[in-house]
Nucleic acid binder design. Structure first.
Lengths: 240, 240
DNA sequence: TTAGCCCTTTTTGTCGACTTAAAAAATACA
DNA sequence: TGTATTTTTTAAGTCGACAAAAAGGGCTAA
């Protein structure tokens, strides 16, 4: 209600170009979910959204079906739709899959990368460095995701790429918490690891790429774990 | 047109129970695509389907959106929808991912299986044996898929399970060709491998499970490869 | 006061019609 | 006769409305 209300101009005329409706809704909602603008577990109302985007329920519905099939929202049959909750019991599985995908995609990138792709990856890496320098957390998360996605794509196995991107997206919601646990040192560690990773990929050194990716993943997992268990200790310290 | 025409009873009354429309359409179409009843590349007409299933285009559309997000159909914007073609150039990637998922899911099953799950898996394995005995190709493909899916589920990592099931489904279309290349010996080899696999899982012998899964995957990939390259030679022998 | 039933409310699922993009066909032109 | 342009056709995208579940609230009876 309080967000995008253009229903004042008589008619909410802002005609999308046909076919763009679904895309707009889909991408906007996806971004908002991943950035935690829409809180996990909060209800998703079709009518409200259709008003907000100035379109009928049909395209909204299609966007929601897509998001549901990516696991970003959950639909309770005949009753309410909610933003997918973050299931902390799933974390070990998540970490396991994430680590494997880090390794596999980086390995494949070392095998199959083209020169153009290396250039692109280096560019993203530079962007990451900038974000770290500027202490721009949102930027770091964003660029970091694109950096690893680009590596995965250079590996040229779309099965891995898809799963990995999904994991990275899923992870972005965690990262929102996670990055808040940063002291200023850690991003530099990652920066160096990224650097080494790119070098290994460029040199087509598969084993090195694997090793670095593995270490990188472990590092990240360890960090998130530390944050979460620290969080638990907070509760544990409540006097009884 | 020639299929399910109930529009004679005044009204096409065959009322699904609300919510079941989409599910029916989705599952039916999915099955037909995987069984090659719907040929890869053949057009999918919403109107025709809505007539066939006796429902409006809306639920059909939703089913198609889901199928599209699983990669089983391809939608050309504003113009036609087709059953996803089988891309033979993708095969190396497919094999790679399939092999990895075989290994990972079997490993995890060996780590995490419960006694109930082992029982269930053994049951499916028995079903597979029966299908082989009866030389029921469709049955073999079906049970084989469920056998491996059950193992994956016993591994309890839904990220892997989902990807693996998708790969197995995607593979079912290939298997339709593939199984036709069977001589009577091969299914028995698989039977034995399955047997060993279950034993390793039951014994919680992770390394053995991994080794067997790897060998199993290699065996399958080799077989499909052989079939495909044999097929190529057929063309190569055309006199010029 | 409390338990059970009925009615209202809310939100999803489905429908049929309309709109429009893009391909195919038909036409005109060189 | 070949190519460019217009027209037709087809199927996807969108809309507004209605129907049916499920949850919540209110009412009655014990």
């Amino acid at each position: 209600m309080a967000n995008g209300d253009d229903a004042k101009t008589g008619r909410p005329r802002a005609k999308h170009k046909r076919g763009h409706g679904v895309i707009t809704a889909y991408e906007t909602l996806k971004r908002e979910i991943l950035e935690l603008t829409m809180a996990p577990g909060s209800p998703v109302d079709e009518i409200q959204l259709s008003q907000r985007f100035g379109m009928s329920r049909t395209p909204i519905r299609e966007a929601l079906v897509r998001l549901a099939s990516e696991g970003l929202i959950v639909t309770l049959p005949n009753r309410s739709t909610i933003v997918a909750p973050i299931d902390f019991l799933d974390l070990p599985q998540f970490f396991d899959a994430l680590t494997l995908m880090y390794r596999v995609t980086t390995r494949l990138a070392a095998m199959n990368r083209s020169d153009d792709e290396i250039a692109h990856i280096r560019q993203l890496q530079a962007g990451y460095a900038e974000a770290v320098e500027a202490k721009d957390v949102a930027g770091m998360i964003e660029v970091n995701r694109h950096f690893h996605a680009a590596i995965a794509r250079a590996g040229k196995n779309h099965y891995y790429t898809e799963l990995f991107e999904r994991l990275l997206d899923e992870g972005r919601r965690l990262l929102r918490f996670y990055y808040s646990s940063f002291n200023d040192e850690l991003p530099r560690v990652y920066l160096q690891e990224h650097q080494d990773m790119v070098s290994a990929i460029e040199a087509r050194d598969i084993e090195a790429a694997d090793r670095i990716a593995h270490a990188h993943a472990d590092q990240i997992v360890r960090q998130i774990r530390a944050y979460i268990s620290a969080d638990r200790r907070l509760n544990a310290s409540i006097p009884l």
